[in-house]
Design a protein around this nucleic acid. Structure first.
Length: 564
DNA sequence: ATAGGGTTAG
């Protein structure tokens, strides 16, 4: 009873002294005390004074320290055992592996422990191997190492170890997570844990039909009452382009937790539906947390509701007692910066009680890029270079600003610096689902089989758009080349190629009547944004484009982001 | 007795 309610160390001490600190009762109370108090010094002292230990109580101690996040102390105990010649078992190892997750020098420890685990033969125990795989992946270890450990279980894998390895692959590249199909081929029955991981992989893939397939699986097996699964479903549907499906999943839930509400709010945020997000927030029956406000503020941001966002930011600390964290600041800087209120954004950064991180500087850079502001862009680019040297955004924005202003030499210098450091701008590509297939387009679209037909259709479309008032934003092209080439370069942006292909195949577009859904890995440029707005009017269709992490809904010349 | 896999993130 006591133990379930996490009593104070003092309470434990008295219970233990009543038990006499000996025999089964005392030992068990002790071990649980340590686990429950999370390995505080007091609990530990009382334990030491008792002077009775066996393997199980050692293990309890390790769990105790592990539960409270004192991984180092758990490791100390383990080495005490190991070097003191005390036998350890698989429970010991499993506990130690969960300690390692997220520890600073955990990867190094992982290697050493893997050796020990192999030497002692515990590696062939399914729980130990699964624990090790998780530790490796959470520490940024090699996927191939994880896979090898998994394979060495050699035919003895179960749902749990499969889930573990699929989670690893899902993190690494969502396509590979379709190892899930092999899992099914081996005739193992997926359970709720498995489904939630596979849903997450679908979210990464961002293709509607995979999500729908898994969703129908979930319904078939009858897990729709599982909160975690429903939450995953809300998230996945949103990421795959359908808030409507998210909403459906949300509405159907019998009971909801904070993650459910936040996921739905984030779904709205992702799709630029600020009003819907605020409405949902007003009828939220759970205690909002930090994530709630990240969702709300970014919902305002993606819908261009600047004042509302600022109010919410204020209310968060004033009325809800939540101290703004880095991500809240990043959202606010983003919203202000996008509105062209760069000075205010910079002021907010100066007022931050903590060091701004790369996300915050990225947000400022984004604002500078949009409004051609040079001074703060330089500052932000320098900071970003320091904090996240592999991030190319600073270089790209600076070089764009220079070439927009016709300062091509400086732009070129930056490009060169970037190449010298082997920082690469992520190549942009887009994909759409047509029929049962996913078609991918790189900028230029050269690889595609129907290239010629596409070019013809593209030219026709551009002509029609120009009649509607489309003016290509040549200044966006990066190099100082001839104007007509700049125009050409613009027309071959991957999302434009995808759009043309979609129009050519309008009859067989997946899942959705009059909606074209284009997914893209990086942000959409202003020119494409314009182009999509006008095309939606021209062909009288809704066009949805997902860029790095949110969706633009274009309908009758208007975008859901209000041009944010 | 103690022990492995799940949901909001770029």
């Amino acid at each position: 009873m006591l133990i379930c309610h996490r009593p104070t160390e003092f309470a434990f001490a008295s219970v233990i002294s009543t038990c006499g600190g000996d025999g089964d009762c005392g030992r068990q109370v002790h071990a649980l005390a340590l686990k429950s108090c999370g390995g505080t010094d007091e609990a530990w002292n009382v334990y030491e004074a008792m002077g009775f230990r066996n393997l199980v109580s050692w293990n309890f101690m390790i769990t105790g320290f592990q539960v409270c996040g004192c991984g180092n102390r758990a490791l100390e105990i383990f080495s005490q055992m190991h070097f003191g010649g005390i036998r350890f078992d698989r429970a010991t190892l499993v506990n130690i592996f969960s300690c390692l997750c997220g520890m600073g020098d955990g990867l190094e420890c992982c290697f050493q422990l893997q050796c020990l685990t192999t030497k002692t033969g515990f590696i062939s125990e399914i729980e130990v191997a699964t624990g090790l795989v998780k530790a490796y992946s959470s520490l940024g270890g090699e996927v191939s190492d994880c896979y090898r450990i998994f394979l060495e279980l050699d035919g003895r894998q179960d749902v749990v170890s499969w889930t573990g390895i699929i989670a690893v692959f899902a993190e690494w590249g969502p396509e590979e997570a379709f190892l899930f199909q092999q899992f099914l081929r081996e005739c193992l029955a997926p359970d709720r844990h498995m489904f939630s991981i596979v849903l997450k992989a679908c979210a990464g893939l961002a293709t509607e039909r995979h999500a729908l397939t898994v969703q129908s699986h979930v319904l078939k097996v009858g897990f729709e009452d599982d909160i975690v699964l429903a939450n995953a479903l809300i998230h996945t549907c949103a990421r795959c382009g359908s808030v409507a499906l998210s909403k459906q999943a949300f509405d159907k839930m019998g009971s909801r937790d904070i993650v459910s509400w936040n996921s739905m709010l984030k779904a709205y945020a992702m799709h630029g539906q600020g009003k819907e997000a605020l409405q949902l927030f007003s009828r939220m029956d759970a205690q909002p947390d930090g994530a709630t406000f990240v969702a709300l503020i970014s919902a305002c941001s993606h819908a261009g509701m600047v004042e509302k966002g600022a109010k919410i930011f204020e209310a968060m600390s004033n009325n809800h007692g939540i101290v703004p964290q880095l991500d809240h600041y990043a959202c606010m800087v983003d919203i202000l910066g996008q509105a062209g209120r760069i000075y205010e954004a910079k002021e907010l950064i100066d007022k931050m009680p903590m060091e701004p991180d790369s996300m915050v500087w990225c947000a400022l850079l984004g604002g500078c890029r949009k409004h051609g502001e040079t001074k703060f862009a330089k500052l932000a680019a320098v900071k970003l270079k320091e904090l996240d040297p592999n991030n190319s955004l600073g270089y790209v924005v600076m070089s764009n600003i220079f070439s927009t202003n016709g300062r091509f030499n400086e732009a070129r210098l930056i490009r060169r610096e970037m190449e010298g450091k082997t920082v690469r701008k992520e190549p942009g590509f887009s994909w759409i689902e047509v029929g049962n297939q996913v078609h991918e387009f790189a900028s230029g679209g050269q690889q595609h089989l129907e290239k010629e037909a596409m070019c013809a259709r593209l030219e026709e479309l551009v002509r029609q758009l120009k009649d509607l008032g489309y003016v290509p934003q040549i200044s966006l092209a990066l190099h100082d080349i001839e104007n007509e080439h700049k125009e050409e370069q613009l027309y071959y942006h991957s999302e434009k190629m995808a759009l043309v292909f979609a129009l050519m195949n309008a009859g067989s577009i997946c899942c959705s009547g009059n909606i074209i859904k284009i997914m893209k890995n990086i942000r959409i440029c202003i020119d494409c944004h314009n182009y999509m707005k006008l095309t939606s009017e021209l062909v009288n269709m809704e066009i949805v484009v997902r860029d790095s992490n949110h969706f633009h809904h274009f309908k009758a010349k208007v975008c859901s982001c209000n041009d944010y």
